[in-house]
Nucleic acid binder design. Sequence first.
DNA 1: GCAGGATGGCAACCATTTTAGATGTAGCGA
DNA 2: TCGCTACATCTAAAATGGTTGCCATCCTGC
Lengths: 330, 330
Amino acid sequence: MATILDVAKRAGLSKTTVSRVINNQDYVSEENRALVLQAMKELDYHPNPAARRLRGQLTMTIGVVVPAVTDPFFASLTAAVEQTAYEKGYRTMICQSSGDKEKERLFLNLLKTKQADGMIIAALENDWKDIQPFTKHGPIVLCNEDIPEPSVPVIKFDQLSGTYAGIKHLIQQGHQRIGYCTGALFAEKGRDKDRNQGYQKAMAEAGLSINPAWIFVDRHTTEDGKQLLTHVMSMEDRPTAVFTGSDDIAAGMITQANEQGVRVPEDLAIMGFGNQPIAQWITPALTTIQQPADGMGQKATQVILELLHNNQAEMEPYELPSDIIVRKST
Amino acid sequence: MATILDVAKRAGLSKTTVSRVINNQDYVSEENRALVLQAMKELDYHPNPAARRLRGQLTMTIGVVVPAVTDPFFASLTAAVEQTAYEKGYRTMICQSSGDKEKERLFLNLLKTKQADGMIIAALENDWKDIQPFTKHGPIVLCNEDIPEPSVPVIKFDQLSGTYAGIKHLIQQGHQRIGYCTGALFAEKGRDKDRNQGYQKAMAEAGLSINPAWIFVDRHTTEDGKQLLTHVMSMEDRPTAVFTGSDDIAAGMITQANEQGVRVPEDLAIMGFGNQPIAQWITPALTTIQQPADGMGQKATQVILELLHNNQAEMEPYELPSDIIVRKST
DNA sequence: GCAGGATGGCAACCATTTTAGATGTAGCGA
DNA sequence: TCGCTACATCTAAAATGGTTGCCATCCTGC
């Protein structure tokens, strides 16, 4: 590989001048600039990023931490980050934390060692207090996380209005007896709190009362969904629709419904959350809330770049709208 | 950030000695080694990779080129690469070529500029002759590609035996009239040739003749699958099973079958290829050939690392077995 | 007293950016 | 015309944080 010195020699100038040309700085005559460019071209010269980096330049690399790229949601997010970053001339490094706190921290070290300019964390494994210190080495943007003080930008979905729209959709379909799955009923903050509020708001607006027996807590998996369906169908007084809070639960419910001959949506309408691929393949296809992973990745990247170039960004959470996708299950 | 000099000072030794400790070299007394390690810990010292890189070291980074991370197959592959690389202390950079030749070449420049030690290309966009020159800057491993001369390692699925196993499965189910989708019938090389051979082999072994009318060329999409089902069911003399060569085609066929009231597998057995997520969600669930993306990513990474450390690797294609996943559609 | 291995330090080197300063030229007032 | 300043242009050298070849020193055993 040719070095800057080779270029300088060939152009008959000093390497400082060549450096100036490379970095588009002033104080180089047009004549010499042309000479340098010519030499660079002839030698197929590319500046050595390691050397630039050592000298304290940007690395043109950003990192993204996801639990697993195989999860469609995080795949979309990663894809959007990579695409957006690429368009701005940045490269992307990935880290699958897969629940490993140490791996996450190790990856964040890239910031410390100047291998990445900024980090997007799409799912925080460590406590924020263990991550906070890394912020002094470069910008960090969080996705879908709540942290004590808003010291870094956070990109979120508008869970409240997503849930609100979902429940409202069920109400518009004529349902009045609406079941609801949530992670934690009395959540003080975070995703569940927002969703719960959306649920309450939609119910209240329609003048519907909430039946505590139709609120299901702590269900997460397809398996939970199967059991939940059996449970719901065995109730004397049962809801006509269930807002599940996750496509996985919903898919499990539908699978079990098909098994038991329960008709969806006639006997029970079922709504998912997330618009994962399974939502469109299961029969009947799932009505669900789309979490715009694309938009999230894009926004997170834009904010990181903003932070990198202007060193400032909005600290109030960026809330992205979630769209409702109506299919056959409601 | 603490530098090696800070560590040296704190340990009361020269930076040479510190460097020796860092790199696990000989000629450092246990005593001093401990002193250095202590100092490193106290200062939370991490060597600056840019500096090491500049001095001609490895970057501990490998790149992986995929068409899109959102494709489940490539997501698995990427995930496996990242995981395997991480276990060996390497970081992973991703590039979604998304059919963009220039993006692919730009990404391969990372090799030239020593930002990555090696590259895994999971889907080649450019002609090999345009990629070949990059090999002199670092190892490249190809996945699922055929190149003129085996100048770099190639990781492939054993398409022949996968197809063979699939057809054999159909025969064991009692089918004798077996339709077959292929990309190109008289393929001279590559995936289609191998698959065609597997088909022929299984049919020949069972003493079954091949009916040219049951060979369908150039079908790829779900839409193609829908049309194909209609076409097959309209045939006077028709197969009882179809090996589709892709889950997408198979899913299209099943969708259309459900639509038309054709029973799968009673009226027509349908087999996919790839074991994409859709295969398990469609009803009836699809019997298919699993392409072990995990194994592929793992193997590719291992080969790259092998090449990096020993500078040599097997040039004969590595062929990974494809497993058959039996579900409800056959 | 000396051979020879263990140990450790100096200084060069990697490719770039940045700092400080050199050189040349033009403008301007005396 | 001369001397001075201002500015454009360019260069040498320092700095960045490591690794490494080579040399010096120490210690052990003979």
